[in-house]
Design a binder for these strands. Structure first.
Lengths: 141, 141
DNA sequence: CATATTATTGCAATTAGTCGCAATAGCAAA
DNA sequence: TTTGCTATTGCGACTAATTGCAATAATATG
C-alpha cells in the first residue's frame, strides 16, 4: 500500500470521513518527500482544483498531526513546516540569533525517548523536532 | 543584583538602549515567577502606564529570547508562553490529542545537551522546552 | 549641557491562522 | 438505492502577531 493509501485508511479506520479535499492534502504532503508548509500544500492543491479553502488545509494538517501521521515543526520566525512520519527522522537545530537551521542525528534522542516512556508513560513525537539555541558562529560573537 | 537589573545590564552591555518600556517588560516577566504570555505582560504594564503598545511588548519579548535571557515555549493551540532563564528548568510534555501539559525532569536532557555541544557545537536552549506526544490516557484510547 | 546620531517606539496596515455557522456531502442502515 | 445523521466544508469575520514608516528619545561626543 502506498503511503497515501495508508494515511487514508488510518483516517477512515478512526472514523474520519474521506473527502476529495483530504485526499488531495494527504497526497500533497506525502508525495512531497521533504518538509512542506501550509501555503505550499494550498498551492499544490490549487493547481488541481481551485475551490478548496485554506481553512480546510489548516484543519486537515492539524488532523494529520493529531493522528500522528504527520509532524508540525515550528522553526521560529513564522516558519512552520509539516512532514509525514515517512520522512527521514532528524532534529532541527535552530539558531535563535541568526535563524540558521542545522540538522542533527535523531539517535541522540533515543535514550531520552525511552526514559519519557518509562518514567512518565509519555510517547513523545521525537522523530522530527526542532531545538532552539546558538550555533557555533553566534556563540563566538 | 536583582534579576531585573541583571537583564537590564546585559541588554545595555550588548549595545541595546534601555527604555522605560523595556524596563517594565523585564520587570513584568522577572517578577512573575512563573510562565507568562504576551497578553499578560501587556496587561501588567497597562496597570502602570497606558501608552505602551502591544507591538513593543512582542518586540521586547523577542529580544529577550534572542539574547538568551528568556525562553519562548509553544504549547500548541495558540498557547505561547515566556519565562526567564531564572525560572526553574523543566520539560513540558504536551499531549497532541487532549492538549494536557505534564512537566518532566530537566535532567533527562543533560546527556543530549552535551552531545549537541560536542558533536555539533550547538548550545541548545534546553532549560525550558516543550515536547509533543501522547499522554498515557490518550495512548490507551 | 547642548547636539547629533540612530535605535526604538507607536501607529496603522497587513498577514497568518482560527472560528462560528449554514450549506454540503460522506457514510451507515434500511 | 434511498434516506437520515452528522462530520466536514466554504465563507466571512475575527484574532494574534508582524511590519513599514515617521516621530521620538536614549546615548555618545564635544
Amino acid at each position: 500500500m502506498s503511503p497515501c493509501q495508508t494515511f487514508i485508511e488510518t483516517l477512515r479506520s478512526h472514523g474520519y470521513r474521506i473527502t476529495p479535499q483530504r485526499e488531495m492534502i494527504v497526497e500533497a504532503i506525502a508525495h512531497q518527500g521533504n518538509h512542506i508548509n501550509a501555503d505550499e500544500v494550498f498551492a499544490l492543491i490549487q493547481e488541481r482544483i481551485h475551490s478548496v479553502n485554506i481553512a480546510t488545509v489548516y484543519r486537515t494538517l492539524d488532523l494529520l498531526v493529531e493522528q500522528g501521521l504527520a509532524t508540525r515543526i515550528d522553526l521560529g520566525e513564522g516558519r512552520v513546516i509539516y512532514a509525514t512520519d515517512q520522512h527521514g527522522t532528524h532534529i532541527h537545530l535552530v539558531c535563535r540569533q541568526c535563524g540558521q537551521v542545522l540538522d542533527a542525528d535523531q539517535e541522540l534522542l533515543s535514550a531520552f525517548n525511552q526514559q519519557l516512556q518509562s518514567d512518565y508513560r509519555f510517547a513523545a513525537d521525537l522523530q522530527h523536532i526542532s531545538v532552539l539555541g546558538l550555533c557555533s558562529d553566534c556563540q563566538a560573537n
